[in-house]
Simulated scan of single mutants.
Amino acid sequence: MWNITKEAKDTFVKNNLLPIHESDDEWEGAFKEAEEEGEDLVSRLVEELNEIKSELRHVLPSRFIPYLEDGSLNQPTLPQAIRDDYLQWTKESDEKFRKVLEAASERTNQALSFCPVTVQEIFAESLHDSTIERIEREQDTLHLYVNTDGGFSSKALIHFTFNGVISEETDEPLQLGQWFIYDELQKTDNGFAFRVLFECPESQWTIEMKDLDARYFYHPAEYTKLRDEEKLDYMSMTEYTARLNPDYLYWFITPDVECVIQSISGSMLIENGSIDFQENEMIVTVGREHYSYHLNEYNPISFIYTNVYEDPYEHLNEPVPSEDLVKAALSNDLEWQVRAWNTMYANPHELAESINQVLSILELKEENELMLSVHAGHFHKEGILNETIIKKYRNILE
């Protein structure tokens, strides 16, 4: 029996179609922001409700239907008792789906104890928002290459090998570019079963196999820094490889081939092949096969991988001295600021006084709400926030 199902995900999504403000303070802030932007908030909310009204009729408990039909469900005029009831209903739905994900995680962890270390290391991080980059089938083996750029894994490229495929079920065939949303791994009598809920197109894919193996690769740290600084497109292959550590092993992996890089000095050499550039095109030759990549679509630098993880932002973990902490956390120097918050996050009890001081000075705004919700939530769980701070940030601590 699976915990992760398309039906469970769809129910969760539909039950969250209509978020509403939880308090009068939130409504006041929303109206103030709309006024500053010259927006008619009430009219926008009417339009938003009308767009999803037909779907909500099939989702909402009957007690909310009158407020859906008269258009007040997402308006400030909604009676407080109904607002509280609706918010409680959505929270219960969220909690139900959270338990689904928790159960799926437990089943996955149980199955991982029977898997190779590399597979365990991959599942130690989330596959969410990873995409299918390459699909290869040979007899009863499926090779699935997964690109995690834009996802939540430190690993850049994952190569899953499903050996001895027993069965495969899906409502849409696997396609390049599909996104991982949720996944679950289970141990079976015959081996393993793996389920993924994909987007673009939406599908539920389940495969059972005798054995699961995997390899993974990293982008060099230089790649990540150049990408984040939006400088990759201005870097030549020669300039880029000159920045790489010559003592590491490297691979050249495209959507079609995987080659060991024999040399990164000067013109890059790949095993049993060659790389040639012709105008706006890169030609990769491996044996007798030729693969063409248009440079307007592909950046060859992104095809270079290593098996060594380098943290491109390791310097941001350098602690800020306690006497400078408050000043750093509130400064406009982004790097110093990040180091300060990382220092506080890692040492909440030792730095409780400074943390409360910083949070007392900061104002909660849209641009810092996500960051503060993560950090304040962490500090709250650690039990180091004073009552004044808890009251100030109560909306993001609940």
Rank of each mutant, 00 (worst) to 15 (best):
I135C: 07
E136A: 13
E136I: 13
E138N: 15
E138C: 10
Q139K: 14
L142C: 04
H143A: 10
H143Q: 13
L144T: 03
L144N: 06
L144S: 04
T148C: 15
S153T: 00
K155S: 06
K155T: 00
A156F: 12
L157R: 13
H159M: 11
N163T: 10
G164R: 09
V165Q: 09
I166S: 07
I166E: 09
S167D: 14
S167Q: 10
S167P: 08
S167C: 05
E168Y: 00
E169S: 13
T170L: 02
D171W: 01
L174P: 06
Q175V: 06
W179I: 09
W179V: 04
F180H: 04
F180E: 10
F180C: 10
E184D: 09
E184A: 11
L185N: 02
Q186S: 12
D189W: 04
D189F: 06
D189E: 15
G191T: 00
F192Q: 05
A193G: 11
R195D: 01
R195T: 08
R195F: 01
V196Y: 03
L197W: 03
C200L: 13
P201W: 07
W205V: 03
E208Q: 11
E208S: 15
K210Q: 14
L212H: 01
L212F: 02
D213W: 09
A214N: 08
A214P: 03
R215D: 15
Y216M: 04
Y218C: 00
Y218D: 02
